[in-house]
Design a protein around this nucleic acid. Sequence first.
DNA 1: GGGGGCAATTGCCAAATGACAAAAAATGAA
DNA 2: TTCATTTTTTGTCATTTGGCAATTGCCCCC
Lengths: 189, 189
Amino acid sequence: MQELIAYLLQFGYLDPTQRELILSKARWKSIARGAYFSEAGKISREIGYVTDGVFRVCYYDKIGDGFTRYFVYENRFVVDMNSFRDELPSAEYIEAVTDCQVLAFSKEDFTELSAIIPGWHDIFFKITSYVLENKLRYTSNMLVQDAQTRYLHFLEHYPGLSNRVPLNMLASYLGITPSSLSRIRKSIR
Amino acid sequence: MQELIAYLLQFGYLDPTQRELILSKARWKSIARGAYFSEAGKISREIGYVTDGVFRVCYYDKIGDGFTRYFVYENRFVVDMNSFRDELPSAEYIEAVTDCQVLAFSKEDFTELSAIIPGWHDIFFKITSYVLENKLRYTSNMLVQDAQTRYLHFLEHYPGLSNRVPLNMLASYLGITPSSLSRIRKSIR
DNA sequence: GGGGGCAATTGCCAAATGACAAAAAATGAA
DNA sequence: TTCATTTTTTGTCATTTGGCAATTGCCCCC
């Protein structure tokens, strides 16, 4: 649980009392592989700090094909922020790609913490805008790269992750077909 | 200037006194086509509400080719949030694609407003996370579409914008070559 | 240990896109 | 207006990637 505190401290100061308070609100939660942390159409009332496992944020087309928008893994927050913030239905799914463990905060506890801890809101503003900006920069960068470059950048930027997620989920994240990704892997070996 | 207030009110309530206060801090600023609102390596100390014109957020590679990450146009805030928030050097440029008019707030005034107006921080959290989430969803969607689909979605999603930005900037935003975009346009007519 | 089912690989061919170069059109400056 | 510069269009060809289908490999469950 100290990892959570360490992560938060990167974005703003919290005194020991505040740290205790935060940890007292956190609830352990397990999500089995294939289960959802958040579902399209439902309101996401929890924000989770991932301590173990990999999630993917994804949506499905009419045929049922799933498209991975991005992965969330250890020591990052997982949440559908638009849904959590305004209590509106989610537009997509957050699915556990592996068995996952998270430290979860309910919307009520989260709101209570922001009322009690002056810097709370600031910290989450920083985390949210920082993480989203970076994801957006990374993603728009991918658009101008070819398939192999995208894959190599992925390997570099997310070391180890390629072995933890199925090829087809990684392929849709990279915006290529599973066959192409398989061929790229072959050509690199 | 009422457009700015109307925009803010979409994200949270502000009483008449607060509205006055906000407008009293806003400064008109003109940016000529080709000039920068924010530059790579420099700290972005202003946030602007665009009342006229189109900006692009972009970066340059070693050869000097520019890549457009996204456009910002009327009735949206333009800012390098990572730089503005933490007073760190920008990673990219914000360039005026047409002559632009913005209502600008200095970092000092912005900070002062957040000290005086309780909802200020909340409003900008909503704007930032909402806008970035949507951009990210839009961009990762583009990754799995072919060039023509991306262009058609752009036309639909940003009506009129395609006539206001040069083809080569639009092409790099779409992640295709100028030649390809030209051919796509031809095939649609 | 042996299917059954899903995931990944591979082959083949077609379609999409890029690279490069040249021509045409548009733009801006004098 | 005229000229120079930049942007856009177009042609040709090479490369990349996708689509489809068959095969192989892997994992899980009985």
